[in-house]
Amino acid sequence: MTNTITPRTRPMTLPPVNKNEVAAASNTKAARKRAAILLFTLAAVGALLTLTPFYLMLALSLKTPDEIAASPWAWPHSPQWINYVKTWTIEGTGVTFSLFFKNSLTIAILSTVGTVLSSSLVAFGFARLRFPGRDRLFVLLLATMMLPGIVTMLPSYIGFKYLHWIDTLKPLIVPSFFGGAFNVFLLRQFFMTLPRELDEAARLDGASYFQIYWKILMPLCRPALITVGLFAFIGAWKDLMGPLIYLNSTENQTLELGLRTFQTIHGTDWNLLMAGSVIVLIPLLILFFFGQRYFIQGIVMSGLKD
């Protein structure tokens, strides 16, 4: 038998603990925890203050006039969903709230389509094409953002009156198919973040500029396109000045004007008026919840590159 000698192992020694470093780390961790709690508290308070008007509007829409007079802030014991039915079928006007809803939805959808298509096409030209005077034209386009809308209000009205478009939905839809400075700027910034090698490879394969725009760049710009679409839809849905100027007949009114008509008829019925306000708000809430991720992504990525 062979004797094996096992080497003696030294005991492992740990470095001495620095009590000052441990205390500093503990204090830093505690400070971060307090800061997180403070930020969470401020965010909760801000959210509560923001949601308070929505809660009051929803609560009032489900009450009777007597309950509103007794306790406007309390949640109704028996919600009156019939208020929404009464609001949807406006009495004494010959029209229904659904007609206002249809007009607003038609204007918002067509305006969104026109804004996205026209703004993306103009932005593609400024971002990917090279032609004389491109930068000066882009600066001129941005300069139109500083022009107040009230300056162009009267000339626009005269032009639409000459075209016999007054009291129709055309003045609220057709201008969206000619782009917009802010939307063009937003999409141009996003186009410039995409590598130009994509264009060069497509050109080598025989693709035209429109094919590059439609088949290659547009699918990659989904967050920015959704952002522009949300801006356009919300702007058209909440527009009051345009319908107030161009629409005269009751059957052509949008929801914003319809609420005013409804208030004229049911001025003291706050439950019905709040029910109408909730109906106007519902599509915007749906868009926000389903599109907020793309909205934030489009805003962030559009500012990555000049």
Rank of each mutant, 00 (worst) to 15 (best):
M12S: 11
T13K: 15
T13C: 00
T13H: 14
A23W: 03
A31F: 05
L38N: 06
L42K: 07
A43S: 04
A44K: 05
G46E: 00
T52C: 02
M57N: 00
L58M: 13
A59W: 00
K63S: 01
P65R: 08
E67N: 04
A69G: 02
A70G: 03
A74K: 14
P76L: 04
I90M: 11
N103A: 06
T112I: 06
L117N: 04
L117C: 05
L121I: 05
V122Y: 15
V122R: 08
R128K: 15
R134V: 12
D135C: 05
R136Y: 09
V139R: 09
L141I: 12
T144W: 03
M145S: 11
M145L: 14
G149N: 10
I150D: 03
V151K: 01
M153C: 12
F160I: 08
L169R: 03
P175A: 06
P175L: 12
A181N: 10
A207E: 00
L217R: 14
M218K: 13
M218N: 09
P219T: 12
V228E: 04
I234N: 09
N248I: 12
S249Q: 08
L255R: 02
R260K: 07
D269E: 13
L273C: 02
L284I: 13
L287G: 11
R293D: 06
Q297N: 12
Q297Y: 08
V300N: 10
D306F: 05
